[in-house]
Design a protein around this nucleic acid. Structure first.
Lengths: 338, 338
DNA sequence: TTGAAAGCGCTAACAG
DNA sequence: CTGTTAGCGCTTTCAA
């Protein structure tokens, strides 16, 4: 049996309140008594029971994090940021993998609440109003992180996607590209982020005033989807003189480059390809991928910092915190000499 | 204020024990009363407070997981396995990132204990006896997962590395390779897993009875280290007619292949390269990497299953659970025609 | 500066 | 089948 505060009190010959005071430094204790208590603590190897403590203080020092899949590298990076910053403020995190199922998300949220978490961060790939409202109902700080959708009326953190996309397109234009294909997904859905990214792309293309503005949609956001679309893209290259492809996600770009590799299309000699996200593989893959860095670690870090802050001083504003944009210029895109 | 069991009892006009009974189905309750209670619960939106419950039951339903870095994809996969299987048995996991620092690991272990976790899984990249003993002292189920080192006297789970390495070398030999370089790291350290892998490599080479047995050590286990060693390897290819390189970790192999890409050495035409681990990138990178699959998800899954099991029936044996070996034959290795 | 006592929300005897 | 009661280990008034 592990020692309790009672044991310490008895051994030190004081009351449990005194022990509590020295543990928490909550009230002055004469140094003489303090020493006795400290000795007793040491002798018994006493460690306070955080569960008992939370029951009375109503503070669990726990933040619940529900993610689509921790195996996803960008999500892992966000969690890394959440964990590390949470730690600085003495918060532990409880992790739940929903695999994207809304019911599971709700169930986990409930579970987290029962464990008395002080805040919840939901990292989701779908946008489910019902889940969000369900969690908002808990009346605890809640931040929603999503790579694909936006809900403007919710606290979140991201980069300015429209601006990022504009800058990437601009960059391709600077490299001499005129016929640039934008590879998207879900662009028509109301809440899709793609709307903003396409907006940025179009703005830059319109400023250019010449060349071909072309948008095409993949079947998904994964490497396979990028690969699968290879045939179409190859056709665009031939028929429409497309010289650069701007993929809305790194995974798509990687898949597409793999397709090119397998089909003897040289990147970047035959076609420049860039991505969006800067996932880990982007800088390891060859050629290294030119892309927009979504600062996943920072996104997580800022998210939890906002939660912790709101835990101190009351309100959590329903705003999007924008993080700086960073372009990663690498070898998958080159000057177009044609 | 959220409703408590008392509120439910009052509204339903019964005692709190009755409410407790219906919540936990711990004792029979007349269906008539049960309905009243259920209605009250529903009306108040009552959810049991898991903290209060753990305090009395001494069961937190929490497993602590300390990892080197959740941003590492193989670790993320293990955590995925841990989380998913833990969930099946109603355990939540608390995640801590130690970044490999032993003192941090100890501190986190302590923190986890204070939160009354029922078991601890430590995923570490170093082997620190002190940390291990410290955690063992908690007298709660503890499993130690490590990719690089072995401690035979501890519960853990892995593949049979000697056998795996033997089979990979055999495979290269079957492809016609005779001069095979084994790229290692830390092979001299007593507890290093590399000893076992080298054993397997040597066994296969000795059985072959001809060709060149060559072992060379990189500076680390990362992609950069694989890249950095490229010059040396290129020399081996030229001078010693090495036709295949067996890298002790996928990261090294990927780095080496990147070096080859950048230096116009064709893989697998000029040199076959294989890895060990089957990290995510292995099957995405081009050429796709031939490698040994370390089943990270399963390792995590089995680890937590062992913990949960020992929580039911007492003891956790200090044994290594071996998982099946799987070879991933891909394009980075080909028949040697020379 | 210290101790006694109440109570956080819940479970688990125990008695009826 | 149901209610009363005693805690779980701790913090926090309130008095002294």
């Amino acid at each position: 049996m592990t020692a309790t505060i009672k044991d310490v009190a008895k051994l030190a010959g004081v009351s449990i309140s005194t022990v509590s005071r020295v543990i928490n430094k909550s009230k002055p204790v004469s140094s003489e008594v303090k020493i006795k208590v400290l000795e007793a603590i040491d002798e018994l190897g006493y460690k306070p029971n955080a569960v008992a403590r939370s029951l009375v203080t109503k503070r669990s020092n726990l933040i619940g994090v529900i993610v689509t899949d921790i195996g996803n590298s960008s999500i892992a990076q966000m969690v890394r940021g959440i964990e590390e910053v949470g730690r600085m403020y003495n918060y532990d995190i409880i992790l739940s993998n929903s695999y994207g199922d809304p019911n599971t998300e709700k169930r986990f949220a409930e579970l987290l609440r029962s464990k008395q978490v002080e805040g919840i961060i939901l990292i989701s790939e779908i946008l489910n109003k019902e889940v969000i409202e369900y969690i908002e109902d808990f009346k605890i700080p809640f931040i929603y992180l999503n790579k694909y959708y936006v809900d403007l009326d919710l606290p979140t953190v991201s980069i300015d996607h429209s601006e990022a996309s504009y800058r990437m397109t601009k960059y391709l234009i600077e490299l001499g590209h005129k016929n640039i294909l934008y590879l998207t997904r879900n662009e028509r859905e109301e809440a899709s982020l793609e709307r903003y990214k396409i907006e940025g792309y179009k703005k830059a293309m319109t400023e250019l005033g010449e060349g071909k503005q072309q948008i095409y949609s993949a079947q998904g956001f994964e490497v396979e989807d990028g690969y699968a679309i290879g045939d179409e893209v190859a056709k665009f290259i031939k028929e429409d003189n497309i010289t650069a492809v701007f993929c809305c996600q790194d995974e798509l770009a990687i898949g597409l480059i793999s397709y090119c590799y397998d089909n003897n299309i040289k990147v970047p000699e035959d076609i420049s390809i860039c991505g969006y996200g800067d996932i880990k593989i982007a800088s390891i893959y060859r050629p290294r991928l030119t892309t927009i860095k979504e600062p996943y670690y920072d996104i997580g870090a800022v998210a939890i910092r906002r939660i912790v802050k709101s835990l101190d001083d009351g309100e959590l504003e329903k705003t999007n915190t924008y993080l700086p944009i960073q372009m990663m210029k690498r070898e998958s895109c080159k000057m177009d000499g044609r």
